[in-house]
Design a protein around this nucleic acid. Structure first.
Lengths: 144, 144
DNA sequence: CCTGTAGTTAGACGGCGTCCAGAACGCGAC
DNA sequence: GTCGCGTTCTGGACGCCGTCTAACTACAGG
């Protein structure tokens, strides 16, 4: 499910160190999952995924760790769906597409879409922006 | 009590009727506020604003009413800020700018920003999209 | 070893939104 | 008018999400 331990523990440790994070067992376990997923998981989903490998990890630790990763620039926290914050290991600029049927979030590469005139906004200094799209898979039409 | 009764009750009643909503006193009270605000209020803020004029209105009614208005197309529900859903009486296409200092949300007219190539997305049918910007007021720089 | 600091833990807590069962209301029929 | 019924409203309970707290643990440095 998420990798039976063949590959990446060492990598996660290195990544954490590079970002000035002490690599405890719990943090490595969270990193091993969340830095490699494309699920855009909520915090509780991260907890469940990680628990399947490290059953003794506590919910508070997962929340702490995720917030730490966000603060250190390893993750981005997104507030797109109606229910909860989700995490995205892709920290490059990109857009998002929300599947209205499943709620799944997909990354859209930055250069797939162009935005013009954005600098021209009256009294504001824009630090960040993205296009948020909502739609459904083509030919995956099912009952509403 | 609410409204020294000079202006818009009639308007809200008419709008509700036009959208197939029975105009009860509570619904009119909510409409009088929420259809005219630019605050992008959360549900609880709506409750507080309306309570100041109709003290006996209950929280559940405000939530029900807001959801009804969204279902009937009078409002849009936005999930932009990290804390809660907010409501926007502007149901035309437009973009949003979030003030990172205050959390305030501003509407940005649709034609202020252009988005290109959006139709070209692989297997998806895009129903809706918008640009979400984050920034601060120019020359309103204060301590981070 | 000993000690201190950083990390982890379980549970309590608070806020947001929904659900429920009952009460109140509004409106048409008589 | 008043009766009856469907709609709306109410307040409280509930559940989920995220944070906080206080105690416990692990680990590095001396």
């Amino acid at each position: 499910m998420f990798r039976t331990s063949l590959i990446p523990v060492r990598d996660s440790v290195t990544i954490l160190r590079q970002h000035g994070i002490q690599p405890s067992a719990q943090r490595v376990a969270v990193a091993d999952y969340v830095l490699r997923t494309v699920e855009h998981p909520s915090a509780d989903l991260v907890w469940n995924r990680v628990k399947s490998r490290v059953p003794y990890i506590s919910r508070a630790t997962v929340y702490n760790t995720l917030n730490l990763f966000v603060a250190k620039g390893l993750l981005r926290a997104l507030t797109l769906a109606e229910d909860s914050v989700v995490f995205d290991p892709n920290v490059e600029r990109h857009h998002h597409l929300v599947d209205e049927e499943t709620g799944a979030i997909h990354d859209v590469p930055w250069d797939k879409v162009q935005v013009c005139n954005i600098e021209s906004l009256k009294g504001f200094e824009i630090h960040d922006y993205q296009v948020v799209m909502r739609g459904v898979r083509r030919s995956a039409r099912r009952k509403a």
